[in-house]
């Protein structure tokens, strides 16, 4: 057990955690904006999975991580559009929609992957490299953890303050929050609730798709069924544990990512605790966080309530 606490291993755990956090953070930030607009999107897991597969197909086909990321964003937006049509236009229960979509995504990606591979061996590619930031990457400890990461990790971390400012200070952010707090208010101001909810879903699902792309590009050289492995669900938990605030949501994401990274390293180092125990940690932590942080003061008042126009 003590091997895990050596400085090198701890360092390695943290470095890997930042990468793992990127996947969940993109999805969590997307879900946060979506939920602030009043849509309780339960389809994050499925959206991420679709993002993973599309990123894989494009990466395997073209070898371009940029194209793969853009394609995954597009795939995420298609998923958002479907969920939006169900929840906003048809006013189907948000939970039922999300759960249904996840089942659809799980089956559809598997089917698509199998028919792509056919009988042969699935193509693979080499994962993308990190981009050290000149100067900053040489800072001891912190430089390795924060400034020797993938480009998308920097983007994910920068998104946190950007989204916080967006929600607080921009006209569109204010309107997005109003849609989640009191849709009738927006309608009375002559603004469309549906437009804002669709926009939030498209934005949120695009980020989730990008998270899926990063999972494929940085960690896996080929697609596997249900490769997203519950990270979409952790994103939803992070938003709740973060009380619908960007910075706190990031903190929750980091806790999950560090535990996840710990599990990987525990296997590598060969600790004499069954490794399944470590694999379980992020999910135990998610339940623990929900029990510990029961404040729901930041929850939008009309979250998950289908809005019927006059």
């Amino acid at each position: 057990m003590s091997e895990l606490l050596s400085p090198e291993i701890l360092m390695s755990i943290m470095v890997a955690a930042m990468g793992g956090a990127t996947v969940i953070l993109f999805a969590a930030l997307g879900e946060l904006v979506t939920e602030r607009a009043g849509i309780w999107n339960m389809g994050v897991e499925g959206t991420m999975l679709v993002g993973c597969l599309v990123a894989y197909l494009v990466m395997a086909g073209t070898g371009s991580p940029i194209l793969a990321s853009i394609a995954a964003i597009g795939a995420g937006m298609v998923a958002g559009l479907i969920i939006g049509f169900m929840t906003v236009t048809l006013r189907v229960d948000h939970f039922v929609t999300g759960l249904g979509f996840n089942l659809l995504a799980s089956g559809l990606t598997l089917f698509w992957f199998r028919s792509y591979v056919g009988g042969g061996k699935p193509p693979s590619y080499s994962t993308i490299d990190t981009v050290p930031i000149p100067g900053l990457a040489d800072i001891p400890i912190l430089g390795q953890i924060l400034f020797n990461q993938h480009l998308l990790t920097y983007i994910a971390l920068l998104s946190v303050p950007v989204i916080a400012v967006f929600l607080r200070r921009t006209t569109f952010g204010l309107e997005t929050r109003a849609a989640g707090e009191n849709p009738q208010f927006l309608e009375a101001k002559g603004l469309s609730v549906a437009t804002r909810q669709y926009a939030a879903l498209l934005f949120g699902s695009a980020l989730t798709g990008l998270g899926g792309a990063f999972l494929m590009l940085a960690f896996a050289d080929q697609f596997r069924p249900d490769i997203s492995g519950g990270r979409g669900w952790l994103a939803i938990v992070a938003v709740i544990a973060g009380n619908w605030k960007p910075l706190r949501t990031m903190a929750a994401v980091l806790i999950f990512a560090i535990l996840d990274s710990l599990a990987v390293h525990a296997q590598g180092v060969g600790v004499d605790v069954p490794y399944q125990f470590f694999l379980m940690l992020p999910y135990v932590a998610s339940i623990g966080l929900l029990i510990l942080i029961r404040s729901r003061s930041g929850q939008p008042a009309k979250l998950g309530v289908p809005y019927l126009r006059h």
């Binding site: 006209t171 204010l174 309107e175 927006l186 101001k189 603004l191």
Partner: peptide, 10 residues
């Protein structure tokens, strides 16, 4: 201000 601001930032 919701609805009466036109710019990106309020």
């Amino acid at each position: 201000v919701v609805g009466s601001e036109t710019g990106l930032f309020v």
